[in-house]
Design a protein around this nucleic acid. Structure first.
Lengths: 252, 252
DNA sequence: CAATTATCTTAACTTAGGTTAAATTAACAG
DNA sequence: CTGTTAATTTAACCTAAGTTAAGATAATTG
């Protein structure tokens, strides 16, 4: 297997040789972290981005000793740092959720990359757009949905994001998050996450154990949570700045 | 006054003649809307961005008949649409909050602009970064702060954002949002926003009337709300992709 | 400027979700 | 295996915020 960066960029677009050459110019290292390890911290120098090579990670910030927000999880081929690009220091903490391997990606080389390839530049903008859409959906969840709706919505989001980075749509998927972490993502206490998940199980929406979730009835889950997949629209390699909806995948 | 786009871009960076020429190539129109008017809607074709020329606007989405989230307000020189750039259709509704004048900005010309000027391209990325930082701060507020803390935090945010687009720091500022709208931003009921604001007034943090807010003690407000201005760090014209913190304005 | 409508406040009451703690269950280390 | 620790569940209780509604205040309109 060749370059990690080329491989993961390849999830977002079809790369020609020219683009591969540009990406090959980045050092191609991998770093591994054990579950729970801190990868980088708020206030640190912000020298490189990461691409997730394998495993789960998350971006978070502590409000105080007791309270924490997890802003998002990072799965295979997700970027870390893209949305903070213009800040000189890291705005958030970044942790390994499972054992994880990341590919660092020097930030100072991005300028050249953007200039050399508008397509790679647009991939970047696309990734930032998508992260923002996910963040807004989270604001909607935390602000206006009930606990059960929030959990249902989040599970659908994870399933869909999973599918997008190499997998086939599947009802059963890996779910290494603890309920406490789910609470920090959705603005709930761990006890109430348990209540919500028990509720979803008792009403035959899902089954789960400590590391796996199965969606039993996606249709009903979509209904329950008001999930609209538009915000996760598959990033497209043929992005342009015109608006005709060739793929027909958007809508309301 | 010349081009709206050149003027507003000028808030973010010092423009040389070359950059002004690039921006001058955009059509320079203004559109005005009355308070409450819809400017664009979820699902619409996404042909142009907007820059706020004057007045307040907001970006929102309805969950159902009763529930709405307002994702953010838009003030002078703010962009609308930057963070959704790679979507073909609009993801959110966009409304005039006060009487407002916006400068539309054709999306299909951005590609040329980004290619012609890395600096203008970086301004764009900077704006997206900043919007994301604000969104994450909102997630933290809604998910983990009490109602009083949320309102205090939001008022500080508005005051600071105000200052950044042309104003001098001031304790007293225009605040045309209704308490219902504040509730839709912060995930609260209008009644509880009233309680929170009354609380802040009774404890001598602020005074306010229907259209103005005065911060009486910024220090105590910062403390109360756990506000850290890093996330609003003034966008810099000298953005580069290195991390040494010349301006010393970040940090934990 | 009178009348209507929108916004804000206050009060009384309800509820979703938080807290604490104890009991299960699962994972893990030796 | 076995003892220990971490994660989940359940229960009892508590509180922040939601709801409804009535009254007060401000803004807008004819």
């Amino acid at each position: 297997m060749g370059s990690c960066i080329i491989e993961k960029f390849g999830y977002y677009t079809d790369l020609n040789q020219y683009e591969k050459d540009i990406l090959a110019a980045f050092e191609d290292s991998k770093e591994s972290f054990k579950a729970g390890e801190n990868i980088s911290s708020k206030g640190d120098a912000f020298d490189n981005l990461y691409i997730i090579h394998e495993g789960w990670a998350y971006v978070s910030s502590n409000l105080d000793k007791k309270l924490r927000s997890i802003f998002d999880i990072r799965l295979n081929a997700d970027f870390v740092g893209a949305s903070e690009l213009s800040f000189r220091r890291r705005l958030y903490d970044f942790y390994a959720l499972t054992d994880v391997t990341v590919c660092p990606f020097p930030k100072h080389r991005l300028d050249d990359m953007f200039t050399a390839s508008p397509k790679l530049r647009d991939i970047f903008i696309m990734i930032m757009s998508r992260e923002k859409a996910i963040a807004n959906e989270r604001i909607m969840s935390i602000g206006r949905r009930t606990a059960v709706e929030r959990v249902a919505h989040f599970l659908l989001e994870v399933a869909l994001r999973f599918d997008m980075v190499g997998g086939k749509p599947k009802q059963t998927f890996d779910f290494p998050l603890t309920q406490e972490q789910v609470g920090d993502i959705l603005g709930l206490s761990p006890v109430h996450v348990s209540r919500a998940m028990t509720n979803l199980r008792e009403n035959a929406y899902i089954t789960y154990n400590r590391s796996t979730v199965t969606l039993l009835d996606e249709e009903r889950l979509l209904n329950l949570s008001g999930f609209n997949p538009t915000f996760l629209e598959k990033p497209r390699s043929d992005m342009n700045y015109d608006s005709d909806d060739v793929c027909g995948c958007s809508g309301n």
